[in-house]
Design a protein around this nucleic acid. Structure first.
Lengths: 236, 236
DNA sequence: CAGTGGTCTAGACCACATG
DNA sequence: ATGTGGTCTAGACCACTGT
């Protein structure tokens, strides 16, 4: 683990241990430098990381402060999208409906940047948070990149598996969101009625080299899903 | 304007001018250094900026590549949330329904971190993209920070005004999203029916010093709003 | 004006991707 | 093996906040 990542983790833990609130002041740069025995740029890089993740904000001429948001019950949009597996204390479980190898449809192939003749794994799940239906998910993995999946792996975190067992690291992802109405099948899985509102998110996950390896469509239970996004900016 | 921002802007313009596609390779670091006459870290910082914004991705040992997404018609979630005023070629207009000074409700006061005895500006608008109803917005500005607003300012971009006229710079924001059903009033403004699905986003905008100055509730027209979010990660 | 974070440099060394 | 981006350092100087 890199120095700046360790320092970021240490500072985040310090915030949690001390149960610091929004606006509480952290030690100044110079102290962090000597405390961790690293150069200014390394501390700065750790702080940038925390800033991007919404943990702190920095104010030139003044100091480094804790940032929080005040809505328990809202999940970070990114925590549900393969990044931080951390959902706080909540327990995530899945019913696996399907794991199979097939040929992709035109649409799926286009999103994965492959030809329809290539094999893909199709995974279909209903996911629960603390026992409540959370979403219905249909996702496709390029078999050339993810050569093996089974129901057991898929019941757990697929991303943990591809990362630890296959050494695959995710580079970046594109999420497409829109609101619509449930069809009959989706309503059945979610325990809702047809035509009820829903949030749909399609995500294309890319490897670090830019190649798509996973295309996923998630249909959320509108009553059990609310998200928070902490943004920084403007960027320029 | 800072060097690394200038370089970021120049590189982005170069990508657009050359109409580069996803995966196209950019000049290597060393060339960018000499081309712009700056040190390695400055180029790196410019590239980080572009990477965070989903414009490029960098692959160690290989190069710097253009990143794009392939869904015309999807707006960046952040472009509609006060950050980049750039919506591409689309024209954004507003009907101003209300601009007035009032006392905040309990709820609004809590979100703005002020007491209910403080004055706020209330702004109510219906917003259009290329003439199509896009969203209904109700927002509150802390009068102690934004001392003056009128219908003319509000018909345009409020953020441009507070930034250029008042010298206020936004630091960060917390967005809370959920899906629900329209009530009768909202349905009227959006030209939809009561109980139609909708995406609701509440956003709290903070100054660079962490103080909230704007709390806004937006109700989107579900057929005219679809968003893209380009994420990088995992962060740690 | 003192204190604090932000920018920028020059350079050493490291880790990864690709042929 | 080569070339490429990533980390880290030490230090100069700048820009902002708050007293």
């Amino acid at each position: 683990m890199l120095k700046y990542q360790q320092i970021a983790a240490a500072i985040e833990q310090y915030i949690n241990d001390q149960d610091l609130k929004q606006g509480d002041k952290l030690p100044v740069l110079e102290q962090l430098m000597s405390q961790y025995g690293v150069s200014k740029s390394t501390v700065t890089k750790a702080l940038e990381l925390l800033e991007r993740r919404g943990v702190i904000f920095q104010l030139r001429g003044s100091g480094i402060f804790v940032r929080r948001h005040n809505r328990p019950g809202y999940m970070s949009l990114f925590s549900t999208q393969g990044f931080k597996s951390n959902l706080g204390d909540r327990v995530l479980t899945s019913d696996v409906l399907d794991v199979s190898i097939t040929k992709p449809s035109e649409d799926v192939a286009r999103n994965l940047g492959i030809d329809v003749s290539n094999d893909v794994y199709r995974v279909e799940r209903v996911r629960y948070v603390d026992g409540e239906v959370f979403c219905y998910e249909e996702s496709y993995y390029v078999k050339a990149i993810v050569p093996y999946l089974n129901r057991e792996i898929v019941a757990d975190s697929i991303f943990d598996y591809v990362q630890s067992a296959l050494g695959i690291t995710i580079g970046f992802s594109d999420m497409y969101m829109q609101v619509g109405r449930l069809n009959e099948t989706e309503a059945g899985y979610l325990g809702l009625k047809m035509d009820d509102p829903t949030l749909r998110i399609e995500t294309i996950f890319h490897l670090t080299n830019g190649k798509p390896f996973d295309y996923s469509r998630i249909t959320y239970h509108y009553e059990h899903s609310q998200f928070v996004v902490q943004a920084n900016g403007p960027y320029m």
